[in-house]
């Protein structure tokens, strides 16, 4: 009887945990977009008003941000300073690949990764105004995405958590 009770509790906790984890990822993904917007805004300012080279821009941006994009900036700087004959697009893509696991932890999907890949296509290879426009478009897209993710986030998180608990309870009942 005791064993049955322990097993039921473990199943309930496990399945509820999945719900809680998924709910937390929903929030993390929104937070990632927030960090992305902050990163792009600071980068744009450094480029536009500082007129610094990309390496210096990243060097100036990195201390002012936290989380994913701080590490991303530092990693990009490292790759840029090595100057091993790769194009910007390739360097940017390889850095994203290296951060694939972290992106998964933030709950980022294919479309998020595609959006993150975009700066690699134009950063450093366009004229100032053109690059400014591209960054502005990207910022707009990221802001829209963030707004969509923020819409009813609390309710969705609650629903997912509740769903986890209910699913756990249902499975326990069936098994009992």
């Amino acid at each position: 009887m005791i064993l049955r009770f322990i097993a039921s509790m473990m199943i309930l906790a496990g399945i509820s945990g999945i719900g809680f984890e998924y709910a937390s990822r929903l929030g993390k993904r929104r937070d990632w977009y927030e960090q992305f917007i902050e990163f792009l805004t600071l980068l744009k300012q450094e480029i536009r008003y500082g007129h610094y080279e990309l390496f210096d821009c990243l060097e100036h941006v990195a201390p002012g941000i936290n989380g994913f994009f701080k590490n991303f900036s530092l990693s990009m700087m490292d790759r840029l300073s090595r100057a091993d004959g790769m194009g910007m697009n390739k360097i940017w893509e390889e850095t994203i690949k290296a951060f694939d696991l972290q992106l998964d932890e933030y709950g980022c999907h294919g479309e998020d990764k595609e959006l993150l890949k975009k700066p690699g296509c134009f950063l450093g290879s366009c004229r100032m105004e053109q690059q400014d426009e591209q960054l502005l478009c990207l910022l707009e897209a990221a802001s829209q995405k963030k707004a969509r993710l923020s819409e009813g986030l609390c309710e969705r998180q609650k629903a997912v958590r509740l769903l986890g608990i209910c699913a756990g309870a249902l499975i326990v009942l069936i098994l009992l």
């Binding site: 480029i47 007129h51 610094y52 080279e53 990309l54 390496f55 840029l80 100057a83 004959g85 194009g87 910007m88 360097i91 950063l123 450093g124 290879s125 366009c126 004229r127 100032m128 690059q131």
Partner: peptide, 16 residues
């Protein structure tokens, strides 16, 4: 084109 990226340290905009 690739050389220009290296020459400008991946920052053509800074050399306008």
């Amino acid at each position: 084109r690739e050389m220009l990226e290296f020459i400008s340290n991946y920052s053509l905009y800074a050399f306008e």
